[in-house]
Nucleic acid binder design. Structure first.
Lengths: 188, 188
DNA sequence: ATAATTTGCCTAGGACCTCTAGGAAGCCTA
DNA sequence: TAGGCTTCCTAGAGGTCCTAGGCAAATTAT
């Protein structure tokens, strides 16, 4: 019988597309096997287990997000960089909800160190443009990252749909507000 | 044989405790049945299905969180109210991680309208103390809620542990920063 | 070109979870 | 105390994760 030509990378890619279509929680080994027309057990030659698949998906997604943000903020600084970052971030989360959800999985530092670290570095790079230094730099980076993740997460869970105000408009104003607080970061 | 005396409320309470112990994703109908020493099928006289159990857990948790926050901000306004809110919010999330995770489930508006609405109203009440009005009120409420949820969510997923700076210290500074931006909310 | 080795996908099956159908035993009220 | 309702049961179907062991295809060595 002809082989399906599976690899860990092809599985991860397919899992990412599946996640965006049906939600990360519905990305199962069985569903993936069905997609390739093979039996469940066949996948275990390429991935260790379901958790391993999710970790690979998280690393892929973090890497894609870092690429997208990197391109968005290239050459910009200050408010321009922050807004570009915020728009790229929310854009990725809304166009790739399953992939985005995967970026929030808890990762071993040694596994995720690279892809998550790239992302962290970009946040910090933007904040350096605001003249922030340690420990304010880390505090501000945590707040900005929190606001970004919290916004897209709450938007997706429907928490914002209880009010008619446009979600896009609030996002732009929130970016303005973050810019303002970074420009005048309160010192202890 | 003696009856176990199950009710939907007792099941929900036990599910909440179980969620805090072993994580929301490990709260299964089977695990709950084991806890009460009954067969899985017995639970279906009290809950409709596993999703129904999670919804009940979400409503319980949102209600508890609203109670806690309500008590924390009682009588305070402005910065005091914001900080009390932030400390109570993060406190609930860290002492009840499973319950907190349940608050983030997407809820039908008619089901969650009450408990989630109570929470929303408290955010807005604090922001009224800063002299904010629509549409800034909603924009700021979304940003504050995002920062709160994002912070505890990222903290829990380990995103902050890649840096030695204390997570508690950053939180206090982040609350300062949010207070600052609310006092000088940038108008369009 | 053929033999040896590695690799990919298979069947079989166990463990756990969700949920339905239908039955028996406990509890409440008339 | 008899009827009716509720609670919990057994039985079982179907889904997911994963392991063990086998055969065949692809690759490498001879």
């Amino acid at each position: 019988m002809a082989r399906a030509g599976l690899t860990a990378d092809r599985l991860t890619q397919a899992a990412a597309d599946l996640a965006d279509e049906v939600g990360l929680e519905n990305v199962t080994v069985s569903a993936l096997a069905r997609h390739f027309g093979v039996k469940d057990a066949s996948l275990y030659s390429h991935i260790r287990n379901a958790h391993d698949l999710r970790i690979r998906l998280a690393v892929l997604s973090l890497s894609e997000l870092a690429d997208l943000v990197s391109e968005a903020i290239g050459g910009r600084s200050g408010r321009d960089a922050l807004v570009a970052f915020g728009l790229a971030y929310r854009g990725y989360a809304s166009s790739h909800p399953g992939r985005y959800a995967a970026t929030q999985l808890a990762l071993d530092p040694d596994v995720a160190g690279e892809s998550a670290g790239r992302y962290d570095d970009m946040v910090r790079a933007v904040l350096l443009g605001y003249g922030l230094w340690e420990p304010d730099l880390t505090d501000a980076a945590r707040l900005v990252h929190s606001a970004f993740h919290g916004y897209v997460s709450l938007e997706r869970s429907g928490a914002f749909h209880r009010h008619p105000r446009g979600v896009e408009a609030s996002w732009l104003r929130s970016l303005d507000a973050l810019d303002a607080v970074l420009r005048t970061w309160p010192t202890a």
